[in-house]
Amino acid sequence: MNFKIETVEKINVIKGQYATAQGCILPALYVLEEHEGQVTPEREKALAHLLDVPTYQVAEALSFYTMYNRHGRGKHHFQLCRNISCYLRGSDEVIALFQKRLGILPGEVSADGKYELELAECLGNCDHAPAGILGKEDINDLNCDKLNALLDKLGAPHGV
């Protein structure tokens, strides 16, 4: 398979920055995700070929680093923090509410493909606990009312 020109150009810049081809794998995966989309097995192989690294090196990186999009994402990707500082300020109630409204468990995408819930470890936003991220935007100082309002705005169902 062939990548878009911009993908290849960006990956070429990366090649000049890292001392080894293996070093390019993680930044190149981000480029791939941005310009091509989901990291499919075909794209994984094509990337190994482009970087001239053994395919196992790309596979190994993907098995260790959790942030790459390998399985497709819900349209609205919610990451809700469950770690200590958020827990201390009521994250569990907020997470429970999300689950109740959308009827999905952490790691799942709703049947219509619109909502995805991921439980996050500390997002470095503990002064705004309970905290989360929607897509790339931080959601601060969550509580049940605020989450309800946010889900209403997105048109989420009231309980599944």
Partner: peptide, 24 residues
């Protein structure tokens, strides 16, 4: 270099491995 979701990569030698494209 953008991290990719692993707390352990904050440990300095894991961070180095991660920049090398290896498991952290």
């Amino acid at each position: 270099h953008k991290g990719a979701g692993a707390y352990i990569c904050g440990e300095e030698t894991a961070l180095i491995n991660s920049i090398e494209g290896k498991r952290g």
